[in-house]
Amino acid sequence: MSCPICGKESAAKYRPFCSKRCADVDLGRWLSGSYTIPGDAAEEPDEAAEELARQQQKPH
């Protein structure tokens, strides 16, 4: 298995990475938001609260 960051052979101690450096690079990417999952745009909290209030006012 090769390291997903640099392509070198992975080390058992840092699997799937080859070194602590590559593991830290990957962690930094996660923490900075570089890795994202595509999806719909999130609603603004105020808009979501207003929509919920409107739905609760409607008769069932």
Rank of each mutant, 00 (worst) to 15 (best):
M1Y: 13
M1F: 10
S2L: 10
C3V: 02
P4K: 04
I5N: 06
I5T: 11
C6D: 08
C6L: 07
G7M: 11
G7V: 15
E9K: 15
S10A: 15
A12K: 13
K13E: 03
K13D: 01
K13A: 14
Y14H: 13
R15F: 15
R15K: 10
P16W: 01
C18P: 03
C18E: 00
S19D: 00
S19C: 13
S19H: 02
K20L: 10
K20H: 04
K20E: 02
K20P: 01
R21M: 03
C22N: 01
D24I: 03
D24W: 06
D24Y: 07
D26F: 15
L27P: 02
L27S: 11
G28N: 14
W30V: 09
S32P: 03
G33L: 11
S34F: 11
Y35I: 15
T36Y: 07
I37D: 02
I37K: 06
P38I: 02
D40I: 05
A41I: 14
A42K: 15
E43V: 09
E43H: 09
E44Q: 11
E44N: 13
D46G: 06
E47V: 13
E47S: 09
A48M: 07
A48T: 03
A48D: 04
E50L: 12
L52R: 10
A53T: 02
A53Y: 12
R54A: 03
R54W: 03
Q56D: 03
Q56H: 12
Q56A: 13
K58P: 01
K58Q: 14
K58L: 15
P59N: 05
H60M: 05
H60W: 08
